[in-house]
Design a protein around this nucleic acid. Sequence first.
RNA 1: GUGGAUGUAGCUCAGUUGGUUAGAGCGCUAGUUUGUGGCACUAGAGGCCGUGGGUUCGAGUCCCAUCUUCCACC
Length: 378
Amino acid sequence: MEEAVKYELLHECKQTGARRGRIYTPHGIIETPVFMPVGTQATVKSLTPEELKEEIGAQIILANTYHLYLRPGQKIVKEAGGLHKFMNWDRPILTDSGGFQVFSLGDLRTITEEGVEFKSHLDGSKHFFSPESVMQTEEDLGADIIMAFDECVEYPSTYEYTKQSMDRTTRWAKRCKQAHKTKNQALFGIIQGGFYEDLREKSAKDLVELDLPGYAIGGISVGEPKEEFLKMLYYTAPLMPKEKPRYLMGVGTPDYLIEAVLAGIDMCDCVLPTRIARNGTALTWHGKIVVRNATYERDFTKLDEDCDCYTCKNYTKAYIRHLIKTNEILGVRLLSIHNLYFLTKLMERVRIEIEQDHLLDFKTQFYEEYGYTQKKGK
RNA sequence: GUGGAUGUAGCUCAGUUGGUUAGAGCGCUAGUUUGUGGCACUAGAGGCCGUGGGUUCGAGUCCCAUCUUCCACC
């Protein structure tokens, strides 16, 4: 059977084993490892798709089933001709299933074997998601890669609950596979199991048996200490098929991204760059800077001397600070452009370092320049 | 000149019949942000309560004087 998405492994870094690859999708090729900007409501907040392509060079973006189901409703997106046409983005799109929202909605939801009943955060109205309904919604949305409906358990959770939830997520993945009909979309499974190695192993093993076209690690980077994160990451990644894309959900910061790649991950996504942009913070090659702070009031230099993004080419810290302090939309836009460009460039650099078998050297050098100390970042 | 009002945090104002370390909103300062319920959240700094006197155990609060600003009237 012809798969919608295929992975090609181009090279493994001799220093680290990190993977340099390509993902072929109905909307083009993705060079991996890749960072995927998040556009929850069919928009990467404050940016146009043209800016994402031309100024940032984003290869693929995310959208969210939960949010688009609530507004405008998947039927409208379908009528528009699918997400790509609706939002005028012709590169690959991945839709998350709403599993994370189930987790973050907290007491607004009830989980049963059948699915999840939840109350809309918008108006309190009751709704129900099942693996089958989510597959239908994701098909209507029309992304290239669609995520199985899972449950992301919070940290910390008991062994008992995590096991129960993980097995249910596996059963839901089977139901997703069965319900999934379209041939031009790839259904990815999500490995759960919290912070218990045997549960991670079981989850991975059971899901791999389903022979899905790609796999993700879910349920980490949910507030645990970094050591825990790294332990589960390095334990779980090798359990994922080598010939398929490996996606780590919800990461992140530059150090987490590099660690993910070192562990053999191909794809990551995170709201961080756009979220902190809205709160006046920039990521740079020399560390994080809160440009909103008073110290930049008269700083007429660019955010990062080593950055050639649209923002850095044209604007100063003092100006961006002024825009953020006065709540001007342009401040958010300029910082979003810069932060996304930075993570995109970071991954581009990582790809080159893998090809040249120097990723470990790069990590050391980058950490030093970024300012991660031994105790802070490891 | 006369009468009335006003003066409390950087700004706009609350402060009950006089009673513990004088509050709020905004602003300011800093921290947080990791499959977006976030233009959000958390914390912090900052007041001889216009000034001087008086009454009282105790005054931002009452009395007198004085100054500031505003309004009205001669």
